[in-house]
Design a protein around this nucleic acid. Structure first.
Length: 299
DNA sequence: AAGCAAGGCAACCGCGGATTG
DNA sequence: ACAATCCGCGGTTGCCTTGCT
């Protein structure tokens, strides 16, 4: 027996949303919050099914949704996260504030897939595509680079589910050697570990995004970095007493010339000695020295 | 300018997990 | 314990736009 449709489709509108419908949906949610989606269309005076309303709101109308093309940095994050998580678009989207799973999925299918193929990388496995004997050397070099840089294996559906469970318990056991820089280092600011000046008050719950200024290497024009706490254990002093910590940063890079230039989510897992054992983003991506960088030298 | 193809993206569909009665 | 329902996710579709001939 098949599942019943989510709503009675008779008399319900489908297809593109009109400005009038958008207005009704926005007004209703702003006034009443997101109540049960099934009841919402009737209450809001819309001839849509609840599912359609939810999709429209989460993918398009939500105030915090970021519009426009993904930046280079966001694209790199998507590639790296996809290598770790596979097609779990919602998980990937959760690392990119303001981006929706649908948007990332579309961008992956229309842009990134092609780019990777062009680079000789299989977008499914993130491994070099099988090369033919007639291929020229530059492509082989690219594939070699790809093999060196994109070593994460996407999870199978089952693996992903298993991994997801353990992730929720905060027990990622990803060997550090798997966290490899897949990107051009000249595209990111180089910040030495000792140059980061974190004060406990600078890491507060993510809802209030405070920032702290740090000095940077002279080779970079980046002048400041904001660091926001992410998870429930987001007071820095907790790190000192929490073995096997799980810490998430939202790093924002400001450029003196251009204003805000990019941001980066960074999830760090540490062992009982306070050493970094895994990150969801290559530390080298932001110029950190993963060998000497021990929990921001806070211990 | 017209016709066609390809690309891009919003929206839909169906499945599966979670929740509720 | 079970069925019904809800919600979220990922895959897919189809329309609109853009570029090429």
């Amino acid at each position: 027996m098949g599942r019943q449709p989510c709503c009675d489709k008779i008399g319900l509108k489908k297809g593109p949303w009109t400005a009038e419908e958008d207005k009704k949906l926005i007004n209703f949610i702003l006034n009443n919050g997101q109540c049960c989606w099934r009841a919402l269309p009737k209450l809001a005076g819309l001839l849509r099914c609840g599912k359609s309303c939810r999709l429209r709101w989460t993918n398009y109308l939500r105030p915090d949704v970021k519009r426009g093309l993904l930046s280079d940095h966001e694209e790199k994050m998507v590639i790296d996260l996809h290598a770790q998580l596979g097609n779990r678009w919602s998980k990937i989207a959760s690392h990119l504030p303001g981006r929706t799973d649908n948007e990332i999925k579309n961008h992956w299918n229309t842009h990134i897939k092609k780019k990777l193929k062009k680079m000789g990388i299989d977008p499914l496995t993130h491994k070099p595509l099988p090369s033919t004997p007639t291929e020229n050397q530059p492509q082989q070099d690219q594939q070699k680079l790809a093999a060196e840089t994109l070593v994460h294996q996407p999870l199978t559906t089952n693996d992903a589910k298993k991994e997801n469970k353990s992730m929720e318990k905060g027990s990622i056991e990803c060997p550090m050697e798997l966290v490899t820089n897949g990107f051009c280092t000249d595209e990111v600011p180089l910040i030495e570990p000792h140059e980061i000046n974190l004060v406990p008050n600078s890491c507060v719950p993510s809802s209030s995004s405070s920032s702290t200024t740090v000095t940077t290497s002279s080779s970079s024009s980046i002048s400041s970095v904001s660091i926001n706490g992410g998870n429930s254990n987001n007071l820095l002093q907790d790190l000192e007493i929490l073995p096997n910590f799980d810490w998430q940063f939202d790093l924002g890079f400001w450029d003196d010339d251009d204003g805000f230039s990019s941001n980066l989510d960074l999830l760090i897992n540490g062992d009982s000695d306070g050493n970094v054992i895994a990150t969801d983003t290559p530390l080298s991506m932001v110029g950190f020295d993963q060998d000497s960088w021990k929990v921001l030298e806070l211990l």
